[in-house]
Amino acid sequence: MKSKLKMRERAVAIGFVAPLFIGFAIFTVIPFIVAVIYSLVDYMALQGKISPISFDVYISLFRGDLVAVGFGQAIINTLIIMLSIPINLLLGLLFSALITQKNFRGGTFFRVVLYLPAVTGAVAITLVWKLMFNETQGIVNIVLKNLGIIEENINWLGISSGSTYPRAVLILKNVWGGIGGVIILYVAGILNIPGTYYEAADIDGASKVRQFISITVPMLTPITFYHLIVSIIGGLQAFMDTQLLANTSATQTIVYFIYDHGINNYRYGYASAASVVLATAVMIITVIQFKLSDKWVYAE
């Protein structure tokens, strides 16, 4: 009787998770296996052409033949734009420490304002950035010129502008848009640190700066680590800025490479190989996080 009930519960339990796993199979497992196969047979969708199984696509992917902006370049671009991550962590930590001080007013207001870019649509924001950084009419050039910082208009986002300016704008935009999230995490972390630690340090006569370095920073390492991993995974998948803000050979990211070769040019083999490389990188980072997070997180 009891085991019959149990069997029934099991059947129901399996039924309840079934949609999740059916979706997982259709939208994740099968597409991923197909992508791996495409990369091995160099599938060209337009001609319906496939080649014998080999790693040739991967080899030419890294040698960079066939394409104007190579995969290696796309990786470098992606990594350079990810420079916003350490900037965000440092600035975010500093701001968080400032607004969580005792008797500090306006901390919540500040936190709410700085998280705004994460909530309003990225397309609208990207478009206004494009307007602000326009070469001839953009407010940024006008202000810089009036302040005497620059003499000639800078072509921030154009193809002819070399690599520094478009990348700098993308990094700046990522700092601008990402710092609010870092602050929310750090503030929550700082408020979680027991006040007794700081009281003890006060009694020992440690300065505020000293307390920040010796208590706050180490206590926040799990959050720093978590955010680092999450933003690396997110940063590797950056795409929109390349397509909408600055589409130059210095800013084309890995996902843009996949999109361009796959969706625009029907080179499914090529695009799939790049996507498998990307997926492998993300998987490795996730596993590292999983393994390390046990060690890093302080026992509560």
């Binding site: 796993f21 992508a35 795409f239 996507s275 997926a279």
Partner: peptide, 25 residues
């Protein structure tokens, strides 16, 4: 639910695969 820990891990593994890798298929 039988094998719940394993099943949950399998489900969560889907978050490791970037959308770009699934986009074309």
């Amino acid at each position: 639910l039988p094998f719940k820990r394993t099943l949950l891990l399998i489900l969560l593994s889907s978050m490791m695969i970037p959308y770009a890798a699934l986009m074309l298929p």
